[in-house]
Amino acid sequence: MGGIFAVILIALVVAAVALTVPLVALVQRREQRRLEGLAAWASSIGWTTYAGSVEVPWTARLPGANPRGVRCLFTGIYRELPVSMAEYTYQTTHTTYVNGQTQVTTDNHDFVVCVVHLPYTYPGIEVASRGSGSRMWRWLNGPDHAEEVGIDEFDRDFRVHSTHPELVRQVIGPALVRTHLAGMAPNWSLHGTDLLVYWQGRMEPTRVLPAVDSVIRVANLLGR
């Protein structure tokens, strides 16, 4: 009887492997076609494609800070400014213990990154929407005047962090504040000449240029 169960188990394992191999190949082919489609789209608007892992300095400002996380990069000129678009990924692992055995699971975290390269150098600064915890902390502890712009509606809804707090109000002026309050500006970070925005997901050509427009909108309002 035990021999029969062993044969059945082996047959199931063989069947699972036989099904998994073509499935993996299918997924790989679909991904290759997707990347080829992105490269064709980039070429159609005059941009350059860099396939595979590309090392760039701004990955240090992304979740996971994976220096080799850029798996494809597209560069070009848009509205007279040099732009980089990339797909970026990093992994996290989780270890659990079930019935005395260790199980390790790996999660991939995928992002689309847009970087507009500016003609001037700026101090390090980041603007992000406040979560409920940040709002509560500010309510309990009062405003941090060193890194706020002095417009209560904005300071209540957005958190600003800068390497040079004394310059925050020079960089984030009334026009940029109004744009954020109108919901027309994404969360962004700026370091040197690189204005960076990212969001979760994979790159879709139809969403790229509208996203770049929103980043360039921020670029054009810096200091205003």
Rank of each mutant, 00 (worst) to 15 (best):
G2W: 05
I4F: 13
A6F: 03
V7E: 12
L9P: 00
V13G: 08
V14K: 05
V17L: 13
A18V: 09
T20K: 02
T20M: 04
L23N: 07
V27E: 07
V27P: 00
V27N: 07
Q28Y: 05
Q32N: 13
R34V: 09
L35P: 05
L35E: 11
L38T: 02
L38Y: 01
A39H: 04
A39W: 04
A40Q: 06
A40D: 12
A40H: 11
S43L: 07
S44K: 06
S44V: 01
S44W: 10
I45T: 08
G46T: 14
G46N: 05
T49I: 02
Y50N: 10
Y50I: 15
A51G: 06
G52T: 13
S53R: 10
V54F: 12
E55F: 05
P57T: 01
R61M: 08
L62T: 01
P63I: 03
P63M: 00
N66K: 00
C72W: 04
E80Q: 14
V83N: 00
M85I: 15
A86G: 03
A86W: 05
E87P: 10
Y90D: 06
T93V: 09
H94A: 11
H94F: 03
T95P: 00
T96W: 06
Y97G: 02
V98H: 13
G100M: 09
T102A: 12
T105V: 00
T106R: 10
D110H: 13
F111T: 06
V112Y: 05
V112L: 06
V116H: 04
H117W: 07
H117C: 09
P119G: 12
T121V: 00
T121I: 02
Y122M: 04
Y122G: 01
I125Q: 02
I125P: 09
A128W: 02
A128P: 04
A128F: 10
R135P: 05
M136C: 09
R138T: 10
R138L: 14
W139T: 12
L140F: 06
G142H: 04
G142Q: 12
E147G: 10
G150R: 05
D152E: 13
D152H: 09
E153P: 05
F154E: 08
D155Y: 06
D155E: 03
R156I: 03
D157Y: 01
D157F: 02
P165F: 05
L167D: 15
L167Q: 09
V168K: 00
V168R: 07
V171M: 06
I172F: 11
G173D: 11
P174R: 08
V177I: 15
R178G: 05
T179C: 14
H180M: 08
L181M: 06
M184I: 07
M184Q: 14
A185V: 07
P186D: 09
P186Y: 07
L190W: 08
L190A: 09
T193H: 01
T193L: 02
L195Y: 03
V197W: 12
W199V: 01
M203Q: 14
E204L: 11
P205M: 13
R207G: 14
R207E: 15
V208S: 02
P210K: 12
V212Y: 06
I216H: 04
A219S: 15
N220T: 15
